Each structure stands twice: as structure tokens, then as C-alpha cells.
Amino acid sequence: MLRATRDAFVGDGSLTERQGAVLVAGSGVMFSLTAIAHAAVEDASDFQFLTYRGLSTTAAMLALVALRRRHRPVVLTGVTAVTWVASCLLAGTSMLYILALSRTSAATTLFLLAAAPIVAALLGWVWLGERVVRSTLTAIAVTAVGVGITVGAGLEVGSAVGLALAGLIPVTVGTYSVLMRSASQVDPVVPTLIAGSVLGVGATIVALGQGGIVVSLRDAALACTSGGVALGFGLPMFNLGHRSVAAARVPLLLMTEVVLAPLWVWIWPGEVPSPATLVGGAVILGAVVWLMLGSHPDAPVAAPSSPVPLVPDDA
């Protein structure tokens, strides 16, 4: 697994469906670290946090570019308008997640995130021509049940703005998954580098307008953990792994973030999850493990090289 991932990362091989599924699920584990980092922030505003998150993500990607310079250099060839749109969506998703957490409950945000697989399935069918298999539909249903159990015991809507921001997350996640499936030739470092730069610059501009970007060393370190570590490792794993996984399955595998985020906050700073959260998380995690075990262990899955035209050529 490690050797196959290394070879695929530098362009010397491809991953099987199961290997890709493991990477995508692993990226969700990395993303879940943001919950504990954001919960521990003391004074930094949302856009100050996002500034350091974006800039540290960019720094992590530049470090990867430097490390690969001697062996398999990162190239920008193949970067198209689709790549730029997908990268901006990725930056927007990062921003929406932090802003939603500050304005509505985490339970509400996670509940709405359960719609991401449905969005990805519909867009993958229309745009890429990917048929949604029965196992994926079953996993979508099981995941929805798990999230419903998790938040049903204590759903807090919060502000209307927070609800609207959280509601956009499944749309951006699903759309990003489909766009990147149609741009499989792009190096997995590139979208993350672009997204981190867009997020860092955009958040810096807003933060400067709100009073500056100076924060405590503690808050800066937490934001950099959220960016340089959680996104710096998680996004390249995601961008590489999703190439071998059908678009509808990608957000399902990312539900590892939904399961683990409340557990990290339980460990520190000690926010005890409800029994419903633990039961629902177990149901979601079971669906993710089932998807990974049900993926083909040997044959690589070729991602579409270009979107399926919405209008047939002979129309």
C-alpha cells in the first residue's frame, strides 16, 4: 500500500479502487483534526484563523514541491480552467466550514454534510456518466441514518446565516469531487497549492480590513495545524485517492471526518458526546469500512479524462 501510494504520487503508477478508498478515508481522518484545532482557539477571529490556515497549507505544498524536485518534479502542465474552479471550490469549502462552525452547531453542519454523497452521485451521473451502483446507494442510505441518529437527539439550528453556510458545504464538496475526477491528469499537489494560496490571500485581505492578522502564538499554531498538517497531508491524499473511486463514493468515505471530529473534541477540551453521537458514528463508520472492503482490491479504476458532453454530438 505504501509503495503503491508513493509510486502513484510521483506519477509512476496507479492505485486500485481499494487503495484509493483507503486514502480518501484517511484524508477524512486528517481533516477531522480541524475540529479540535478550531475548538481550542482563544482569541483569533474566523478570518485570522483562515489566514494562517491557508498560508500554512501553501507552505506545506511548497515544501512538497521542493522535496520532489530531484526525483519527480511537480509540473503545472494540464492545469485547466476546471482545475482552477475546483481549487477555488476547495478554498471556499475550507472557509465555509470554519464560518459555519462559528455560527451554528457542529451537529447541524455534519447533518447537512450527509447530503454531499447525493450531490456527488447526481453530478457524477450527469457530468461523468458514472452509474451509481447499488452498494453506493445502500451506503448513502446507511450514512444518512447514522448522521440522523447523531444529530437527532440535539439538533440546534443556530443562526440563519450559519445554516445557509453549512448548507453550501455538501454542494461544494460534491462538485469538487466530480470536477477533480474529470481532471485526473493534474498532479495531486497542484489543486491544494492553488486552494491554499487563494484561501490565504483572500482571508488575509478580509482580516486586514477587520483589524489585522496578528494573533497569539497559540492561536497561530492551532491554525497552522489545521492547515499545514490537516490539509497539508489530507488534501494530497484525497486528490490522489479519489481518482480511483467513483464520485458518489468519495464523500461517503470522507465521513470518517464526521465520525472522528466529535471524538477528538471529547479527548480535548473535554466536550462529552451524547450516546446518540457515538451510536450514529458507529453506523457511519460501519458504512465507510463496508465501502472500503467492498472496493476491488486489484484492478485500477481509470478516472474519466474529460466530462461527458451534456448534449450528444449527433443531437
Rank of each mutant, 00 (worst) to 15 (best):
V24S: 08
T16G: 15
G11W: 04
A25T: 03
V24G: 03
D12E: 14
I36W: 00
E17I: 11
D7I: 01
A35W: 02
R18F: 04
A8L: 11
G26M: 07
T34K: 00
G28C: 03
V29C: 09
R18S: 03
F9S: 09
I36E: 01
A35V: 07
V29G: 02
S14K: 15
A25H: 07
A8W: 08
T34G: 11
A35Q: 02
G28T: 00
F31K: 05
G28K: 04
T34Q: 12
V10N: 04
A35H: 03
M30N: 08
G11D: 08
G20L: 05
V24Y: 10
T34N: 13
V10I: 15
I36N: 00
L33T: 08
G26C: 10
R18G: 04
F9E: 03
A25E: 06
D7A: 14
L33F: 13
S27N: 09
G11T: 13
A21M: 01
A8M: 10
F9H: 07
V10M: 04
G11K: 11
D7K: 13
A35C: 05
G28M: 01
I36P: 00
L33G: 14
L15P: 05
G13N: 07
S32W: 00
Q19N: 11
Q19P: 05
R18H: 04
M30Q: 11
D12N: 14
I36G: 01
G28S: 03
T16F: 12
L33A: 11
S14T: 15
F9M: 09
I36M: 11
L33V: 08
S14M: 15
V22F: 14
A21Y: 00
V24P: 06
E17F: 11
G28H: 02
F31Y: 14
G26E: 04
T16I: 11
L15C: 05
G26T: 11
L23V: 13
Q19F: 11
V29A: 12
G28V: 01
L33I: 07
T16W: 13
A35F: 10
T16A: 15
D12I: 00
G28Q: 02
A21C: 05
S27L: 08
V22M: 15
